[in-house]
Amino acid sequence: MTEKNEFWRWEESRWKNPDLDWENAEVITLGVDVGSVSSQAVILCDGELFAYSNMRTGYDSSESALNAASWALEGTGLTLDDIHFKVGTGYGRVNVTFADRNITEIACHARGGNLMYGPTVRTILDMGGQDCKVIRCDERGKVVSFLMNDKCAAGTGRGIEVFTDLLGVPIGEVGQRSLRVEMEPEPVSSTCVVFAKSEAIGLLHAGWSTEKVLAAYCLATANRVVSLLERVGMVKDFAITGGIAKNVGVVSRIEKILGVSALEPKYDTQIAGAMGAALFAKALAEKKAKTG
């Protein structure tokens, strides 16, 4: 497959805080979130964001974990040995072989969401590559209630990927283009992504524009995750994390159905899990220092 045909390919990224110097930090911690599609590493200096990386998970999860960590460390002068405590999380957390501890992505998302969106956030919807999580948390970022659906591709990033491939629309443009419709169409009726794809082919044959099909699928995705949100119960403030949080077509439709605006993200929405892992690492490093 040539590069130009990989419509699903999203942009990998890294960032370093120019205003922070790790040499002044007392506690340096690392969180690595190995998801089924993307992996992130977050480095915190005394609980403040110092650097992060966000990249595609390869076939080998342990390699992906190491790659994400190395990319975040690159050019900072830090090495893995300088990190006081490392926590692995995500679907592939057991493969973060260099981690001092593993913590579930549910707990990490709650903790990371608390820092990224502030202590008023009570409901976090994480729309990942191969799952969808609804997490309710308290003002300290502790999980109150959660639900995770990883059985079915409907309502996940993989579902959107299938449509980018079918329609030849780069994943970064899906949201915007789905909003370019005069009237909101009926949502794609099939829940199953495989059947939704056949349905979309029929709609294209019936003369629907690419934008209209995208609108119908983004709406179906929004309906899907809202039904999961309703099971757990949505309490304000509300935040969306994960890759689909960058898709304005899905996000705006979720907001419209719920009648609630999601908090504006201050950082890359995909790093919430790794951020939480790094925060857990900080707490564990301090506990370790206290107990010797």
Partner: peptide
């Protein structure tokens, strides 16, 4: 915490 284990798929909602 309330932990919801299970799934939603085309055939319905199945959570414990």
């Amino acid at each position: 915490m309330i932990a919801h284990y299970g799934y939603k798929d085309g055939s319905g909602d199945f959570f414990i």
